[in-house]
Simulated assay, not measured.
Amino acid sequence: MARAVKEWTGKTPDTKAPPRVRQRVFDRHEGVCHICKLPIKPGETWHLDHVIALIEGGENKESNLAPAHAHCNLAKAAQESARKSKVNRTRQKHIGAVKPKGRIQSRGFGKKERTEKLPLPPARSIYRSIEK
């Protein structure tokens, strides 16, 4: 019987899991990719994937990690990134956190044709009152 080991938790969301934790996660999932459900063969590159993404409230804990083929994980990350960025942009726009990208173009004023030029009014001199 194996001894009980305390669950690993990363100090920050960016903390990488140490090799001993990678091995435990791999063994717990019996070397099967959690995305495509195919076995990970010896020599194949694989990643530790967060089952519940950190941005969606998942934690950087051993219980939230699962092995995944590198190509499966990268494809999943690309899909999630596109979806999350669209949701984030829409949410920011609705709550007013970002300004609109461009100005709203108005219709403008109607064009009037001027047929004659109006004369300028006579200039008022400030010296007229002094001269008198």
Results as ranks from 00 to 15, higher is better:
Ser81Gln: 14
Ala77His: 12
Arg124Tyr: 01
Ser85Cys: 00
Asp27His: 06
Asp14Glu: 12
Gln79Leu: 13
Ile95Val: 11
Asn88Ser: 03
His50Arg: 01
Ile55Val: 09
Thr15Trp: 03
Ala17Pro: 01
Ala66Leu: 05
Pro13Ala: 11
Phe26Ala: 07
Lys132Arg: 11
Ala17Asn: 06
Pro39Thr: 07
Lys11Asn: 15
Trp46Met: 11
Ala97Asn: 06
Phe109Asn: 12
Ile95Tyr: 11
His29Cys: 05
His34Leu: 14
Asn64Val: 04
Glu131Ser: 05
Arg20Gly: 09
Lys86Cys: 00
Ala82Trp: 15
Asn64Met: 09
Ala2Gln: 07
Val25Tyr: 02
Pro121Phe: 02
Cys33Leu: 01
Lys6Ser: 05
Arg89Ile: 15
Pro42Met: 09
Val98Ile: 03
Leu118Pro: 01
Ile126Arg: 13
Arg107Lys: 09
Val51Ile: 04
Glu62His: 00
Glu59Lys: 07
Gly57Leu: 07
Ala82Gln: 07
Thr9Val: 15
Gly102Phe: 04
Ile104Tyr: 07
Leu74Ala: 03
Tyr127Asn: 03
Lys6Asp: 10
Gln105Ser: 09
Pro39Arg: 00
Leu120Trp: 13
Thr9Leu: 09
Leu38Pro: 00
Ala2Glu: 10
Ser129Gly: 10
Gly108Asp: 00
Leu118Val: 03
Arg103Lys: 13
Gly102Ile: 02
Cys36Ser: 12
Gly31Trp: 00
Pro18Asn: 02
His69Leu: 02
Gln92Ala: 11
Ala66Met: 11
His29Ala: 05
Pro42Asp: 15
His94Asp: 09
Glu44Asp: 12
Lys11His: 12
Ala82Pro: 05
Lys61Leu: 08
Arg20Ser: 10
Pro100Ser: 09
Glu56Gly: 04
Lys16Arg: 08
Arg91Leu: 15
Lys132Gly: 10
Lys37Thr: 08
Cys33Val: 00
Lys11Cys: 08
Thr9Gln: 07
Lys101Tyr: 07
Gln79Tyr: 07
Ala17Leu: 02
Gly31Met: 04
Glu59Asp: 12
Ala4Arg: 09
Lys37Tyr: 14
Lys101Gln: 13
Glu80Leu: 08
Pro119Ser: 13
Arg22Met: 11
Pro100Cys: 03
Ala68Ile: 00
Arg20Met: 08
Leu38Lys: 08
Gln79Met: 14
Lys86Ala: 02
Ile130Asn: 04
Met1Tyr: 13
Leu48Pro: 05
Thr45Glu: 12
Pro39Cys: 01
Glu7Ser: 05
Ala75Glu: 09
Cys36Tyr: 10
Thr45Phe: 07
Gln92Phe: 02
Val25Asp: 06
Arg22Val: 09
Glu7Lys: 06
Lys101Ile: 12
Gln92Arg: 14
Arg22Trp: 13
Val32Phe: 10
Leu118Asp: 04
Ala97Ser: 01
Ile35Pro: 04
Lys76Glu: 08
Leu120Pro: 15
Ser81Tyr: 13
